[in-house]
Design a protein around this nucleic acid. Sequence first.
DNA 1: TGCATTTGCCTAAAACCTTTAGGCAAATGA
DNA 2: TCATTTGCCTAAAGGTTTTAGGCAAATGCA
Lengths: 194, 194
Amino acid sequence: MVRAGLSAERLARAGAELADEVGFDQVTVSALARRFDVRVASLYSHVKNSQDLKTRIALLALEELADRAADALAGRAGKDALTALANVYRDYAREHPGRYAAAQLRLDPEAAATSAGGRHAQMTRAILRGYDLTEPDQTHAVRLLGSVFHGYVSLELGGGFSHSAPDTQETWSRILDALDALLRNWPAAHVPPR
Amino acid sequence: MVRAGLSAERLARAGAELADEVGFDQVTVSALARRFDVRVASLYSHVKNSQDLKTRIALLALEELADRAADALAGRAGKDALTALANVYRDYAREHPGRYAAAQLRLDPEAAATSAGGRHAQMTRAILRGYDLTEPDQTHAVRLLGSVFHGYVSLELGGGFSHSAPDTQETWSRILDALDALLRNWPAAHVPPR
DNA sequence: TGCATTTGCCTAAAACCTTTAGGCAAATGA
DNA sequence: TCATTTGCCTAAAGGTTTTAGGCAAATGCA
């Protein structure tokens, strides 16, 4: 009886592919076993349980995404860097919707600590070096950028922007223009009324 | 044998409560039957299946959210309206995380058509009447606002902003200030280089 | 090479969720 | 009052998760 050569990493990779094909919430230990043509119980030697499997897929996606982001940022600054990072998220979500959904999984603190989450925050912060922001404004801006990137990508992916006129590429460009303008001219703490 | 008085609406309402208590993805036909102290199969006289139940919860949440938004916008304009609408989303997500997650459910076109989705878009558009934007910039701005609101709320809810210094309330205020400033000074289509 | 240990996948089985089919009793209404 | 409709039930099949225990393949050491 020939062995299938399973391992936690291979399961996570196959799980990520499966997620892109059928959606992250359809990723199941059973479906994965079927894909390896192996009995379900066999997977439990490699992953603790279903939650563990999903966490591994999430960590994989976060790493991939961080790697792409690091690549894209190399040698860029200012709006160029802003656009590059934004496009990494959007393109990744379009190419790998299941993995992107996985990356959104709420991780327990232990898993979160070993995740690439910190790299993502660092890279967003790096972009802001091209603009003139000091703490705590920098943190506010990091959060704004994260919100826009994630919010836009997830609404677009979920079809929230369909059935409407200006195409989404145009909107995306204009949003990036707007963010660039905003960062170059970040409003002071207290905007005077009117 | 006394009847439990089930109905599609009661199931949706109870499902929404359950979602807030244990998370939307833990909402199951079984759990709901247990809550009504009724056999599982009995629910299938009122909802078509599990997907149907979830869709009804999503539609309920979208309606509630739209009602709150309409209330909040009444008599407000400009930044006042912007802040009010933004807070409706954020507060709703914090008070009803399960319902908020439900509202994010990808609806099939048929359900989407009967949903309050259109009202939401309309209300965001209404806010922009307080600013000087014409089409297609208005649509771009609607999409930006949707992205920021949804993105921020879902990151904050998912714990994405935890373990960090400036508190999230402060960031939220500053982001609203920034959006207001941006809308008052929306950049023209072609930002000159440099 | 030969043997002991480890490792990997298996069968079996229990628990839970989903969904359909068919039945009886309660509610409704003529 | 009696017929019909409606609501919840039992039964059953099929799928996913998870644990326990077993045998054979791979590995490693003499």
